[in-house]
């Protein structure tokens, strides 16, 4: 085993959604090849041995596709590296003696369930408002029955890679969810399957987004810069366009 590095963690501890939280300081010796979450596993082992309450943090796949790891590391969602989630961040990205501040994604619309675990059901309600397509019941249709040009399919797929982690909201100074909503609106507006609800969808999803209390977009670009799936800012422009067209159409 390689020589470990010693880091000082300042971790946000909060009992539940309603209580006030504060930072606690911990010292951890980590292997440089550990992921950031594995380092937290080590910390929690330590805390359990000491008879203390382990740090609650979300994780599921640990391979960058579930979007559960809602940590802001030194002021940046998913840490200092671009295009990855927290589980794909490794301790080799830090130096011996570093002080690392870890806090949950923060927004009024994202409650802190406990410590670093964040309630992102607001996203589910936005999806439920319009992030779907209607299909006929019966047998599944053949693949490629509806022809979609490759470049359109690619663009839709690029938007569809959003994992709904909420890094965009956490990075935005206005806690705006427009990159998330824009990604879903763009994906479905591009595909023929999404055409039926195209205009009502964008209005319903934007209305729900506003009702959830997310902020407005000021085009700073922080969301796209921090997105682990590198969703481009152009999806917000697409959503604006779709929304304007729907509204002028009386939707």
């Amino acid at each position: 085993m390689e020589k470990g590095i010693n880091v000082t963690l300042k971790v946000w501890r909060q009992k539940n959604e309603t209580s006030a939280g504060s930072f606690e300081t911990y010292k951890v010796q980590a292997n440089p090849d550990m992921s950031f979450l594995e380092m937290f596993d080590v910390l929690n082992e330590q805390l359990i041995t000491e008879g203390k309450d382990p740090v609650a943090f979300d994780h599921d796949c640990r391979e960058g596709i579930c979007g559960m790891c809602s940590m802001v590391i030194n002021g940046r969602p998913h840490g200092p590296k671009g295009g990855i989630t927290t589980c794909q961040l490794h301790m080799r990205s830090f130096k011996d003696g570093d002080i690392i501040v870890v806090e949950p994604f923060r927004a009024n619309s994202f409650g802190v369930i406990k410590d670093l675990s964040v309630d992102r059901t607001a996203f589910d309600r936005i999806i439920a408002a319009g992030g779907f397509v209607s299909v006929n019941t019966g047998n599944a249709v053949d693949a490629n029955n509806i022809l979609i040009p490759k470049e359109i399919a690619d663009k839709a797929f690029e938007a569809a890679t959003c994992i709904g982690c909420g890094a965009c909201v956490s990075a935005c100074k206005n806690a705006s969810a427009m990159l998330f909503v824009g990604a879903k609106v763009t994906q479905l507006a591009l595909l023929p399957q999404g055409k039926a609800e195209r205009q009502s969808r964008v209005v319903a999803m934007v209305n729900q987004m506003d009702a959830e209390g997310f902020g407005a977009c000021t085009n700073t670009g922080a969301c796209a810069a921090e997105c682990p799936k590198e969703i481009p800012l152009s999806v917000i422009a697409t959503m604006n366009r779709e929304y304007l067209a729907a509204k002028l159409n009386g939707k």
Partner: peptide
């Protein structure tokens, strides 16, 4: 209005 959307500020 936008400034009120994150009541609990980031520590860093």
């Amino acid at each position: 209005d936008n400034a009120k959307k994150r009541k609990e500020k980031y520590g860093k």
